[in-house]
Nucleic acid binder design. Structure first.
Length: 135
RNA sequence: AGUGCAGACCGCCUUAUCGCCCUGUAGUAACAAUACUAUAGGGAGGAAAGUCCGGGCAACAUAGAGCAACGCACUUCCUAACAGGAAGGCGCUGUAGUUGAGUAAAAUCACUACGGUGACAGCUAGUGCCACAGAAAACAGACUUCCCUCCGGGAAGAAGUCACGGGUGAGGGAGGAGGAACCUCCUGUAAGGUAGGGAAACCCUCCUGUAGGGGUGGGAAACCCUCCUGCGAGGUAGGGAAACCCUCCUGUAGGGGUGGGAAACCCUCCUGCGAGGUAGGGAAACCCUCCUACGCCAAGGCUUCGGAGGGUAAAGGUGAAAAGGUGGGGUAAGGGCCCACCGCCCUGGUGGUGACAUCAGGGGCACGGUAAACCUUGCGUGUUGAAAGACCAAAUAGGUUUCGCUGGUUGCAAAACCGUGGGCUGCUCGUCCAUAAUGCCGUACCGGUAUAUACCGGCAACGGCAUAGCGAAAUGGGUAGGUUGAUUGAUCCCGCCAGUGAUGGCGGGGCCAGAUAAAUGAUAAGGGUUCCGCCAGGGGCGGAAUACAGAACCCGGCUUACAGGUCUGCAUUUUUU
RNA sequence: UGACCCAUGGUGUAACUGGCAACACGUCUGAUUUUGGUUCAGAAGAGUCCAGGUUCGAGCCCUGGUGGGUCAA
């Protein structure tokens, strides 16, 4: 157990974000993915000695939302929801790079976003657990 | 109070919980770096947007000048700079004014006041374009029209028509006479006259012309002959006018009066005569002007068409636009041909820093529009942009070039020490790491062969060369990171001063985001503002809305988007005083 | 972040130096055929992405905006 997961307060700091360009390219070229209504989720195991936690990337395409204000607000709301519910991913042996892509053309209220994100987190955990058992 | 326009400004607030980014302080991980924890402070905009201009900053380039390319364009000022701003000029335009001109009243023009608006250098530097229509679309002149002259009187441009048109026209002068008729003489003209008889009105006769009619006249016909009737030989025209006549006045002679008076004489009436009158009227010869029949003279005239030569550009109604405009004079007709006013151009004076304004003189006018057409003129711009650029470390990885080193002592060896080189992200100290060959040539030396020259071998000394290794530096390329650039600035607030103002100066105070796959969020509660509905009228309850929009190196502008609100000015409407 | 291009009938494209927005396919109607296709004849269908300006006149020139696309890294 790392010190980040030990923390009972739901924080979301810099190391939990996916920032390395190489990792991002790797994730988008080799990662597995599934779709759950507003989100498209991609994930890939992370390797390396420095990895202490899952790393998350949140993206809202410019194609669907022209105004920067709308994109920023959606990303902030998704990040807030992830911050409050990321503990549902605890207990996995490996650490993963995860990309949340909001692929819906209309804005959703925060409550709905939160519910959908919880569902997507549960499904992600199940898929990962299944994969580990199989291997 | 409402509405509209213009300008300036604000552009939701508070609390709690969970979070994010930056900075300071303290603590923990030995220091540092870094991370975590605690705590304090700060954390999107008027447009952060579009990326349309301008600058700072940085790298590279650069002798100077020019060309090209791009941009700008009324003036002066502000500014680091600008395509920005301020003030002004000019053009266009809105409202108001009774101020002036103008009109019947208006329209309209000018002026004044308050605004709005303009990519506002140059088409009298050049080139290009101006569809259709129209005679013509830009050197003005071709066409139509208009005007003049000529093309013909017995010859010719053609045809038609008419004697209509142009002159002359009741001539002029001298003598006789009051004057006319009349007579004599003279004279002018292209022509310039009015039959005979009678005194004359007028009548008669004749000639001629013309119009109409008749003829059992002629003739083939054209036409001729003849007869009858009508017309023509001046004017009811205008003005003047002698003789003469009448009236009146004056004079004179005679006469009358039952007029006056003593008388002289006076008054009045009648008649005659003569002379006269600035008197009145009539009369008309005649004169002047005008008109005119027939005749006469000259010549054809007029109209239309055509031809030749010339004048003119006013007219042509088309077009978005037509060759200065309006009016008058002038002309054969016209024209800036001339003139007045307006416009335009040139020159000069005055005022203004200047754009420009105004005044005077000159030019008669050449100058259509289009430069958001090419272009010309003036001014400006080196190129590239923070993913620019600078620094650091890693993989002790490679390429190329240059330089340096590949030693010494102890020791059997391992190893140690000295020296040398390098690292520890600036220097010193300190500490750590490395210190790894061989060949060839020459010189000297040693050994051998050899009488000597010479030859062979060795070499731990010196010098040189080659390869290899190690190190450093430079350079070029690749991979993935970090720090910096990068937040104290053409800064913000307040006050004073200068300036019409944009703005600038001085003084005091403040520090106000700094992310980098990229920070401002979520939840809850309350409030504010606006609108709607209900209760009801101070107010309360409920519902809805709360815009446009998110920093990315930093500034100055412009443009675009925007719920709602505040202030100021102007205009207008209503109510109250 | 920087550089650049495009927008015209339902679709794909023209319109040269500013002067009546053209062509093909498609659609519709009629003819030919037993019917369909082919073929032939004819017709309809736009005001040029939006707003403003320059000009007598704008698809074209200028300014601002909207949408779409390409390139460099």
């Amino acid at each position: 157990m790392t010190k980040f997961e030990k923390n009972t307060r739901n924080r979301f700091r810099k190391p939990e974000r996916l920032t390395r360009k190489k990792d991002i390219q790797q994730l988008f070229s080799a990662g597995r993915s599934f779709h759950l209504h507003p989100f498209t989720v991609k994930y890939l195991p992370l390797t390396g000695p420095d990895v202490l936690t899952h790393q998350v990337l949140i993206s809202v395409p410019k194609r669907n939302f022209k105004l920067a204000v709308d994109r920023n607000r959606l990303k902030r709301q998704i990040r807030e929801a992830y911050r409050l519910h990321k503990h549902r991913l605890a207990g996995l042996p490996d650490k993963y790079a995860i990309a949340y892509i909001y692929s819906f053309k209309q804005k959703l209220p925060y409550k709905e976003l939160e519910n959908k994100l919880i569902a997507s987190l549960d499904r992600l955990k199940n898929e990962l657990a299944k994969k580990n058992n199989a291997s």
